[in-house]
Amino acid sequence: MSRRFGRYGFAIGILVVLLIANLLMNPTRFMPGNWGTLLGLAAPLIGAALASTPVILAGRGGIDISVGPVMGLVSAVVIKVLYLDSGIASPYILWPAALLLGAAIGAFNGFMATVVRVQPIVATLGTYLILGGLTLTILPAPIGPAPDWLKAMAGAWSFLPLGIIAALWWALCRTPFHGQLMAVGSDDRAAYTAGVPVTLVRFLAYVLTGLLAGAAGMMLTALIGSADPKVGANYTLIAIAAVALGGVSLAGGRGGLLGAAIGAVDIFLLQSLLTAFNVSTYVLQVAYGTILVVAVVLIALQDRSAKRSHA
């Protein structure tokens, strides 16, 4: 347990500093009565970070850069195709449709990366471009509104989808699949020798990433209250930075969704703080890049130190 939370130490330290700074700069915004709204604002980034994590944990360079475009396509399909064009407003249809669409895209990425054995970043780059064009074809310009129940998930009910994801991940961590996922990410040859179905585990990690990206797309739709074909892609690289900041090793096999969520909250608080100072978006990009580099270096040093202590 202490080793696990040791990986989160850097992210937790930044979280405390940024939270104090935000409270000093804008205490009203962070009053308890506004926590639901704040969580709704942060939810798409947290969701994107959670979605990016399973394939990274699976190792072999499994970085899925199509997570953002999946969010954008899900938003476009749910609002334009299902809600406005087809008149379907039930959450019992729209939520499963979003999750199934995300899982199907994840399965395609998984097939390309694990069966065809295309380099993951190349396979998901192709998906990134395909989904971007498809989303613009379906929805050339922003359109709305979203159903009222969905918009409520950016306010008082913002905790619900993230809470469900947390509960499902908690349950998954108590199944053999989680141990197999971490084993494959740490050393796939040793895992294969031990009888772990390496290809299947990695494939399922891509499906899980797609499923969570579908959920993140619904969180994004709730936040903006409509569908915008250009917003989703903005989350791709920021989510990867959040995952690295949260102590998840980009080499695979170490970390988890809790760390990714903490990293995403850190970036959200950084955005909030810099916005309060009227800092330009260009400076935000510099901040994201710096965070990513520093986090990756610290994790690499930590992993190296751990290997020496076991030697």
Rank of each mutant, 00 (worst) to 15 (best):
W169E: 08
M218F: 04
A97H: 04
I121A: 10
L18H: 08
I63H: 01
I65V: 15
V118M: 15
L181G: 09
W35Q: 06
G106L: 06
W95S: 07
G155R: 09
R7A: 13
P44S: 12
T199G: 11
F10P: 00
F268G: 03
V16P: 04
I105P: 03
A242V: 02
V294E: 13
W169G: 12
L212I: 14
I46N: 01
G179V: 08
F268R: 01
P54N: 08
G232W: 00
P197S: 03
L39Q: 02
L160H: 03
L150A: 13
L212C: 06
L220V: 10
L39G: 11
Q271V: 08
V122F: 05
A251N: 12
L101E: 11
G59W: 06
S52L: 09
G144D: 09
I88H: 03
P176H: 12
C173D: 09
A260I: 13
S2A: 11
A311Y: 03
D148A: 13
P120Y: 04
A242G: 03
A239C: 07
H310P: 03
V248E: 05
A216S: 12
L41S: 07
Y8G: 00
M25N: 02
V81G: 01
V184Q: 12
A300M: 14
S75D: 00
M182A: 07
